[in-house]
Design a protein around this nucleic acid. Sequence first.
DNA 1: TAGATTGTTAATCGATTAACAATC
DNA 2: TAGATTGTTAATCGATTAACAATC
Lengths: 215, 215
Amino acid sequence: MREKRISEAVVRRLPKYYACLKKLAEEGTEKVNSTALAALLRCTASQVRQDLSNFGGFGQQGYGYDVAFLRDRIRAILGLDREQGVIIIGGGRIGQALASYEGFADEGFRVLAVFDVDVSSIRVRPGVRVAHISELPDFVRDNDVEIAVIATQADAAAGAAERVTGLGIRAVWNFAPCDLKAEEGVAVENINMSESLFMLSYKYKNLSKEKGKNG
Amino acid sequence: MREKRISEAVVRRLPKYYACLKKLAEEGTEKVNSTALAALLRCTASQVRQDLSNFGGFGQQGYGYDVAFLRDRIRAILGLDREQGVIIIGGGRIGQALASYEGFADEGFRVLAVFDVDVSSIRVRPGVRVAHISELPDFVRDNDVEIAVIATQADAAAGAAERVTGLGIRAVWNFAPCDLKAEEGVAVENINMSESLFMLSYKYKNLSKEKGKNG
DNA sequence: TAGATTGTTAATCGATTAACAATC
DNA sequence: TAGATTGTTAATCGATTAACAATC
């Protein structure tokens, strides 16, 4: 059976549906329809139905969607229904912040270790190992590592990415201020703070020209 | 004269052009054509010409684009041709990391102060003030603040944003794991790390289905 | 002038929205 | 059954790509 290719635009909205459904479930809401979901996501009901139907019929005509059911389906679609081991390359402030952020654990991400060339002065939560970069190959061999976070300086990022993919890691989350491109068989997501800040600067500068709506 | 509305898709590419042109200039490249730029950005030459022509004719037929000239034009378009004062709400690890990141200074961003309810144990670079949140109104009144960074917990983010916009700040850069929506007359950019991580998880899970290309 | 390459118009492609038949 | 709401097909809209006349 041929899986339909899901467009990038749809994938970008999936985490938003998920966050929204988690919230609704926490509030005790049991069912929701496409109109209500659309209002929460600030899009059209049509788009909600179109998006969700990409993955199968999760709703019921005349009723709507069961919140907990839909949330769990999207969680599974996102691959959050299992543990994923994470290592962090670079123990600077960003690396330390990520290593200490407890929110990730809620969705099954387990930060296993932080690697750096200088191990002194890296402070993380108990349970997260701090190790010299030379220990990386052994660690990856001996542990179940799905995701590598690149939290190095820009000039070291591409090298670090090559290194981890060379060790067989197939998911790279890059925080260095440069865009890493995905090679065949490797998933890459860039958090490019500079680009975001520059866009903010652009939007700010052009505020008067806007007719509302951006963000 | 009626300014043409620039689409979000184009704005998202502007920082990439800018980064690319800065790099070319540093390497001593003096001219570049749309085909070469397209190769660096991994898009089509047609798109490069289409994008740039939104802002005016920066090139020269038969020649191409002058690297330094185009870089400076895009810098100005992004609003990076001046100083912009930045304050940070929230002195946790993310807030501290941002307060200490020196790369922003290169583009005219000046981190002036970090505010929090608990000022102890916040360590930043010399020259950055650390103050209790109660000092915020006075500080904003007495200083030139363009941008407020929200680096609080998720539940405090919306309140913090209201607070700073209430004080007249018109640009908000949000790092809390929730999407702040822009009200009329306020520019907002969200760095939503959770969404990015979930998308990475999705891409990783669906790697085999991909025909290359993502990131 | 001949060659190169832009800026722009036209064609294509994909994503969003609207409409409605299916069905709970 | 009647009312509500989905899933899906068709229409619209916008963004990307191709083509080419303008021009350096």
